[in-house]
Each structure stands twice: as C-alpha cells, then as structure tokens.
C-alpha cells in the first residue's frame, strides 16, 4: 500500500504517562500488599494503613494527578488534607495524645499558605476557589468541635485555626463579591 505521508515526523521518546501508570500500578499494589503482610507477620503497632494511605497519596498527587482542575490551590489543599489524614492516623494507630495540638497547627498553617497562594494570583485562582472554600468550612467546623471538646485545656491552636479560617472566608466573600456567589452557583449546579 502506497501511502503519501502528509503528516510531519514526530518527536521521538515523548513521555507516555498512560504507559508509565500501567507499569507502576503493579509495584504500588504489591508494595501495599507487602505492607499488610509484613505488618501482620511481624506484629506490633498497626502501621500498614498509614503506609497504604501514603502510597495512595503519592499515586494521586505525583503519578496520576487530576485531569481537570489541576491548579496550585487545589493541589496545595489536597496535600494539606493528605498530611492531616496521615497525622490523624498516626495519632490513632501509633502514638496517641498529641494530634489535637498538632493537627490544628498544621491546619492553620495550611489555611494561611492557601490564602497567600490564592490572593497572589486572584484573577486566575478565583475560578479555582472551591477547594479552599470547602477546606475553610471544614476547618471552621472542625476547630469549633475541637474547642467544644477541649475548651478546659489550653488549646490555642484551635482558636487560631477558627479565627484564621473565618477571617479568610470573610476576606474571600468581601474581595470577590458577586464572583464568589457566581462561582459557587457554577460549582454546585445540578443541570
């Protein structure tokens, strides 16, 4: 068959993520299974769920990132959420007694950095605000619950997390004005 080539030669060796994912999927699954098996065989503290969540986080954040809405706000918030989940798991499964102090500190640091990332590129990031807004809402709910549960102790990180989150949420509403509502309307549409 004689084919008249009408397409340009392509760049060789271009990166094929699909192929890479197909190859790496099995080492990841094997590593997860190995964690469980080793943990069960050796005994002791239950660390394998933490390792599995860690592997999942690496898979989702590095190897198979979001196909839609991959932006600095969403990626940063996701990273903070994974860190918080891992911290909570370490508290529950390995060393208890410190997370109620550390998690809100990580939380308000995340809120503050999230705010900086948002306001330093507001024109673009206003279309990506949903993860930040949801994070703020959950931070407010979480810190309010934390304050209610541990109000007799000196848990200042909850107070800081609560105030920083409320302030940032108010700042978003005031600065974005109508855009804030428009963005929420789009994000929550069911049409």
């Amino acid at each position: 068959m004689n084919v008249n080539i009408t397409y340009p030669p392509i760049k060789r060796g271009s990166f094929l993520r699909r192929r890479l994912l197909r190859i790496l999927r099995w080492p990841f699954i094997l590593a997860a299974i190995a964690c469980v098996v080793i943990n069960v065989c050796i005994g002791g503290v239950v660390w394998s769920p933490i390792a599995i969540v860690g592997l999942f986080a690496v898979w989702k954040m590095v190897l198979s990132p979001d196909l839609v809405d991959y932006n600095r706000t969403s990626q940063f918030i996701k990273t903070v959420v994974y860190i918080l989940i891992l911290l909570a798991m370490i508290e529950l499964l390995i060393v208890p007694g410190w997370a109620a102090f550390v998690i809100p500190i990580v939380g308000f640091t995340g809120v503050a950095i999230g705010g900086v990332l948002f306001f330093t590129d507001m024109e673009t990031q206003k279309h990506n605000m949903l993860p930040l807004v949801l994070f703020l809402v959950f931070a407010i709910i979480g810190s309010t619950i934390g304050l209610t549960l541990w109000h007799e102790k000196n848990f200042w990180p909850f107070i800081v997390l609560d105030s920083v989150s409320v302030l940032l949420l108010l700042a978003l509403i005031i600065v974005l004005g109508g855009d804030f509502l428009r963005e929420l309307k789009r994000r929550f549409h069911i049409k």
């Binding site: 979001d66 839609v68 809405d69 279309h127 949903l130 789009r186 994000r187 929550f188 549409h189 069911i190 049409k191």
Partner: peptide, 13 residues
C-alpha cells in the same frame, strides 16, 4: 471555555 469540575457535574467556564 475551560473545563471545570463542579461538585455534581463538570461544566465549561
């Protein structure tokens, strides 16, 4: 437009 992800459906922004 740009494809965006809503809570329930994607949309074009």
């Amino acid at each position: 437009t740009s494809l965006k992800k809503g809570v329930f459906w994607h949309y074009l922004d």
